Amino acid sequence: MKETLLSALRFRHACKHFDKTRQIPGEDLEFILEAGRLSPSSMGLEHWKFIVVRTPALKTQLQGACGDQPQLGSCSAAVVILAKKAELAPDSEYVRALLKREVPQAEYEGLLRFYADFAQRVDLVAWSVAQCHIAAANMMTAAAAIGIDSCPIGGFDPAAVREVLDIDGRRYEVALILPLGYRAQPQPARHRLPLEALVEYR
């Protein structure tokens, strides 16, 4: 099991050029999306919404909104991950419903008070975007486990992406765009710092 996971992580890389002739089967795409859905989120609020773009014309428009990065034009599908905004207001029905399932009824009102205080102290949008990155990481690992490549894109024009996909900016922030497909070129050499340079035990 350990080696299976490490193999998937070694297979994954930021694929810049996908094979346009190969399309991801529907069941494999659903498997990847399910990995996102099952991801952990702070307070169990499931901060994400996924828009799957497969239409060639829309992928081309997205490419233009992302500095013309070629992976968007050549991928089989692009998952645009949206971070919830309006739903995260402390008094929203969404927050009340999802927090209620996290704790026993006796603790529910206390959790609501905790969240209301928390919401005053943090940037809720940045927090929501960070949670979406957890889902993205799980989707990339799931994709790699079944031989599908990905490339997380954080460099984009948010307003242009919202316009292309008709996204309500009051409800959602564009968190990340995740092209998926099959590599058209060999995987380049991987460069990572050694573990001892990154880990400190105390």
Rank of each mutant, 00 (worst) to 15 (best):
E87Y: 10
A135Y: 00
D157G: 11
P40W: 06
A35N: 05
S39G: 14
V79R: 02
V164Y: 00
A143S: 11
A144R: 04
S74R: 00
F156A: 07
E196G: 11
A130H: 13
G169K: 08
F114I: 09
A126D: 13
Y172I: 03
K84H: 10
S76F: 03
M43E: 06
L165P: 02
L6W: 14
G67T: 07
D123E: 08
K100L: 03
E107H: 13
Q63N: 06
R192Y: 10
L124Y: 00
D68C: 12
L193P: 02
A160G: 04
S41M: 03
E34V: 08
A97Q: 15
P188S: 04
C75V: 03
L58D: 09
I51C: 11
E3H: 13
G155I: 05
Q69D: 10
E3L: 06
E200F: 14
H13L: 08
I146S: 10
R190N: 11
A142M: 08
S128G: 07
G26T: 04
R113K: 15
K16W: 06
A184W: 03
S76L: 02
R162F: 07
A189T: 11
Q69A: 11
A145S: 15
R192T: 10
T55M: 12
K2F: 11
E30W: 14
R96T: 06
Q185G: 10
H17D: 12
V103I: 07
A130S: 14
H13N: 14
H47K: 12
K84D: 01
I51L: 15
Y108L: 05
H13Q: 13
Y172C: 02
E173N: 04
F156N: 01
W48T: 00
V95A: 03
F18S: 04
L5D: 13
K59L: 10
S7L: 03
Q185E: 13
F114R: 10
Q23G: 08
V164F: 00
C132D: 02
L5K: 09
L5I: 12
R101P: 04
A143M: 08
D19P: 03
A78M: 04
F50K: 09
A130M: 10
Q63V: 01
A159L: 11
A77Y: 01
L176T: 01
F156T: 05
P188K: 09
R10F: 12
